[in-house]
Design a protein around this nucleic acid. Sequence first.
DNA 1: GCGACAG
DNA 2: ATCTTGTCGC
Length: 221
Amino acid sequence: MKIYQPHTWPQTLEAAITIQESLSQQVITEDQLREPISYVAGVDMGFTADGTVSRAAVAVLSFPDLQVVETTLAHRPTSFPYIPGFLSFREIPAVLDALEKIQTVPDIILCDGQGIAHPRRFGIASHLGVILDMPTIGVAKSLLIGKHQELPETRGSWQPLIHKGETIGAVLRTRIGVKPLYISSGHKISLTTAIDYVLHCTPKYRLPETTRVADKLASNR
DNA sequence: GCGACAG
DNA sequence: ATCTTGTCGC
């Protein structure tokens, strides 16, 4: 798919914050999808043992049957350290390289990490969504910010994630007896719709099939 | 000032 | 994220 290069990549946290505060104003948390959805994609990152090389993987699956239709990989030198709150600056460059190779343009992208459940409401899913101007969902395995009530053990149960009095996402149980997932709107999708799609993509395991396929490729296994 | 902290 | 062995359960 064709990628329109957005902004230049910052070299300081101060510059990164300026970008986040500016672009976060473009995030849309209402449904603006092209339905019916035919393809969903998952993106994930892996790094070489010494961390100097980033490896991005993209997996496009058909929807709703979830069959793998295409995968791509991209490598590039790691250029930004991991700093909580700034994950996108470390991972998006390589992700864009991998997405550029994709022939089957997905209708929704599930990202590893937060959407608007972020200090400045601009996690990696939102950042990628704004750059691509397409629907993205934040699917994180752990909490970055926010608080929530206890979650029932039933699959599909969820609780709103609250930060500074506002609902920024949801804690979702995709399987009984395992840790929940942290879901949030990335761009052009509402929280409830995002939850629906995540549940549809997790028929058997804790993580979405999209993420599992991309994960395996990114970890080089 | 003291903790918390996506991957 | 990555480094690591065995172990519990379907």
